[in-house]
Amino acid sequence: MIFCAIMEPAVQVENLVKRFGTFTALDGVTFAVERGEVFGILGPNGAGKTTTLEIIESLQKPTEGRVSVLGLDLQSKAAEVKARIGVQLQASAYYDYLNLTEILALLGSFYPNKAAPATLLEQVGLSDKAVNRVAELSGGQKQRFAVAASLVNNPELVVLDEPTTGLDPQARRNLWSLIKEVNQRGVTVVLTTHAMDEAELLCSRLAIMDQGKLLAVDTPRNLINKLEASYAVKLTMDRPMTMAQLEALNGRVEVLQSGEQNDPAAEDQESNIAENTYLLRLANSPSALKSMLDEIAKTGLGLENLQITPVTLEDVFLELTGTELRD
């Protein structure tokens, strides 16, 4: 019996449906999170990520479907599940007039198994802020404290809802390291994000959601490998190409307009696109690349720049939903 319980997934979600009046927030979502993994739920705002997590956290009841957490049926064993999981809400504040140590001690007092506040603060690098209040922390420190608060009961599973939203790049990387450390201690992590890089770097497996539906579940690498197109090609020509010339390139063509801004959140990309620059997606075959270069040569236009990069989750998302990831 104990053996069976150990083998149970950390989270098992089956045919989950959640309706708010006539609006369907979740439409038949099914997935399992294995013990010890970092499982990401990726999707734009309104995809149903937070609703899924709130059902797992017993904050909402599903309209239909079944959820078990750590081998326990959520409907009948909610209190037991709450005692064994840690939760960081998307927007959660803490008492204004208690310091960090006092807050952790208070939250810990609600659980049968509690961690020492000093240990938790040390784990998240906030030992020097032990007697400070939350209002005195930076954004990154607040998020690290939120992770510490989710660990007050030495949980077997932590659920983090968009843990890095609103953080600067440095703070995001710090938090990724912290989440990896938590996971390396044997804690299963379920997190939501709408950041592709975060999902790709942190998660051992990903569920991609949009408009209440689960579109795919796999490792980031498998999701990328399943795409027909395996490379993104960026061309910069000396003069504009016609639509007929672009179509003849035999790729899935996306034209980046001259001077158009890239995703401002992606700090490592160029802030501006040069004039007459075009983005193509190509299948992973030498012939496709050769064919494209032949067509360019036929146009008589000069090729000023050519960049070939592997496709990313962004491309997977585009392929699955037909849209860019919406903020």
Partner: peptide, 13 residues
Amino acid sequence: NQSILKRLLVTPL
């Protein structure tokens, strides 16, 4: 408003 009540709800309190 600060989601403190919600935070308490996810504990076994």
